[in-house]
């Protein structure tokens, strides 16, 4: 989100505006596109976003309330829905905590030291982004499923990973793996090691340096990563779908619950649960805009 005013981005604009007094005709600058071209492009931009993004979003809320408020609240408070919501919150909480702890550890190792193979290690961190969510689920089935590599051993010792909470967490951690690290690593590299070195030389322990120097320096970026990680963790569908087993009231997360309702033609109930996730997306974007103003950075994927 651009936080600069138009005049700051383009000083020429400030001059242009100053000239916009009655009686003085404003002349087109070298970089100004013809009036028609400008408004045609703006119109196309609005039309495209309205068609592909705004309408679907509005549709979610309209369909959810299509049978009135009572039907809406009934859909989101029925026991199966509540258990799906609880499960989603649980899985997201565990995944976010794990990714935060290991993200901070990895960022410390990667950003604060010089070693060979660093850029290779960073590209490995980004690897899950380029793996289809379905494949992210599949790999854990191949490891821990009944026919999987560790399947027989797990079965013998009566440990359930696939079609149970651990599988859901593993698949979610996999798809959200890069989110926090890729916010922390570039920032910590940029900040350098001088402050930490000073603290160590003054006698602080490594852990104390981390808590008092490093963590406060990266807190907004960390929060930003946590926010994106959480949004993806709660909304993940493909990877979770493969490892869940779709046991109603037990291993169904919110997105999977939405799918089941939709496939059973309970459209209104399905959209009602979907509004919760759509609301999460909107809150995430607003919080993201706020954090970007704190960190002072622009948008990026």
């Amino acid at each position: 989100m651009s936080l600069l005013t138009a005049e700051q981005i383009d000083p020429a604009l400030a001059v242009d505006r100053a000239q916009e007094r009655p009686g003085i005709r404003r002349r087109r600058g070298a970089n100004d596109d013809p009036f028609v071209v400008k408004w045609a492009i703006i119109l196309v931009a609005f039309a495209f976003l309205a068609l592909f993004i705004v309408l679907p979003l509005i549709n979610v809320f309209v369909q959810a309330f299509s049978k009135g408020r009572e039907a809406y609240f009934a859909a989101i408070t029925e026991p199966v829905a509540v258990s799906a919501i609880t499960l989603t919150l649980t899985v997201a909480a565990i995944s976010v905590v794990l990714n935060t702890v290991f993200g901070l550890i990895a960022a410390w190792a990667i950003a604060k030291f010089q070693f060979r193979g660093k850029s290779f290690l960073i590209s490995l961190v980004d690897l899950p982004f380029s793996v289809s969510p379905v494949i992210a689920g599949l790999v854990f089935v191949l490891l821990f499923g009944l026919q999987g590599i560790f399947g027989p051993a797990l079965h013998a010792s009566d440990i359930k990973i696939i079609f149970a909470l651990p599988g859901l967490v593993l698949a979610t951690v996999f798809v959200t793996f890069p989110f926090i690290m890729r916010e922390l690593i570039p920032l910590m590299q940029e900040q350098g090691t001088q402050e930490e070195e000073a603290a160590i030389l003054l006698g602080a322990s490594g852990l104390r340096t981390f808590w008092r120097i490093t963590l406060p320096n990266v807190k907004w970026a960390l929060l930003y990563g946590v926010l994106l990680c959480n949004a993806r963790a709660m909304g993940e569908f493909g990877a979770v779908s493969v490892v869940s087993g779709h046991i109603r009231g037990e291993t169904n997360t919110m997105p999977l619950h939405i799918e089941i309702l939709y496939n059973e033609y309970q459209f209104q109930a399905s959209f009602a649960v979907a509004t919760l996730l759509a609301g999460l997306a909107i809150v995430t974007l607003i919080a993201k805009a706020f954090l970007e103003s704190r960190i002072g950075k622009g948008n990026r994927p």
Partner: peptide
């Protein structure tokens, strides 16, 4: 600014929600 903010919706909106919304639409 609103246009700019809307761009990120597909990142933030869970895919299942986008799926049923587009299908219905």
């Amino acid at each position: 600014r609103i246009l700019d903010a809307l761009i990120d919706i597909p990142f933030a909106l869970p895919t299942a929600v986008a799926g049923i919304a587009l299908t219905n639409l």
